[in-house]
Simulated scan of single mutants.
Amino acid sequence: MTPEGADEALVAAARRGSTEAFARLVERHQQPLRAFLRRACGDWAFADDLAQETFVAAWSRIGQLKSGASVRAWLCGIGYRKHLTALRSRRRDRAREASYEAERPQVGARFEDDRLALEAALAGLSPDQRACVALCLAGDFSHGEAAEALGLPLGTVKSHVTRGRARLLQALEDRDGR
């Protein structure tokens, strides 16, 4: 049987739900797909991740493969589109980070002193208090959301936030008074 004929038989079986047949397709086309993606993106680890994603997508789309079409070409097409999507995503991430950096206020000596004082005050809080302060004051969680996330009673979260806020304010006042 020709390689193409073997692929067609495996595709037909995979369409009927045979995971064994699909596993054989993966075995047959894994190395060529990885080699193509490694050349296309220049990053071996990333290419291997893309190959995995390609096979997951191929399993869910096996019914869309046209009869007689090249399985290898179909897989490379899926992989290449995944690569392009990842590139666009990386570009958006870089643009977002650049925008954030451009809009971020410049760190001055006063701001840096405040930040260090706050970090020292946070380090002095108990782990539960620090977590409550981090979620409610810095993370914009409600007291109820923080209680649920941390598995603590609502009243405990409220008292931790109140006491933690007071300690942080005291740390800033002490720094200003020096």
Rank of each mutant, 00 (worst) to 15 (best):
M1L: 10
A69S: 14
E119C: 11
E27Q: 11
D43V: 11
A117E: 05
E8H: 02
D43G: 13
G108Q: 08
Q31E: 13
R38Y: 15
C132I: 14
G63E: 12
S159H: 04
E101A: 15
R175L: 09
R15A: 14
C132H: 07
L125H: 11
V161Q: 03
S60W: 06
S142W: 06
R165A: 01
V133A: 02
S89Q: 12
G139K: 12
A95T: 01
G144M: 09
A123M: 10
L118N: 11
P127Q: 02
V133W: 01
E103G: 13
L125M: 02
F22A: 00
A6Y: 09
E119G: 00
A166R: 05
G151L: 04
A138E: 06
S70T: 11
C132T: 13
G5N: 11
R175V: 06
L122P: 04
R165E: 05
R90V: 15
R81Y: 02
D140K: 10
D176R: 12
D140C: 02
A95D: 15
A166I: 10
A131D: 03
E148A: 00
E53F: 02
A171P: 01
G42Y: 05
F36G: 07
Q31I: 07
F46N: 10
R130H: 12
R115E: 15
D48G: 05
L37N: 03
A146G: 07
R88T: 12
K66G: 03
R72P: 06
D114T: 10
E148P: 01
S67G: 07
S89D: 05
L84M: 15
H83S: 03
L84N: 04
R94E: 12
G17N: 08
L152I: 02
V56F: 09
L152S: 00
S18H: 03
G151M: 06
A13V: 11
S99P: 06
R165I: 02
L84W: 04
L168I: 08
G164R: 04
E148D: 00
Q129T: 02
Q30T: 06
L152N: 03
G124R: 00
A23P: 09
P127N: 05
S126F: 15
L37E: 03
M1H: 14
L25Y: 09
G177Y: 05
G139P: 06
P127L: 03
F22V: 05
P153I: 05
V56Y: 05
D128F: 04
A51F: 01
Q170M: 07
A51G: 03
D49T: 09
Q129I: 04
V11W: 00
C41E: 00
R91I: 14
Y80I: 07
F141K: 05
A51T: 14
D7Q: 04
A73N: 05
S60E: 08
V161A: 02
R91Y: 06
F141I: 09
A86D: 00
L137G: 07
G155A: 10
R175D: 08
R110E: 06
T162I: 05
W74L: 03
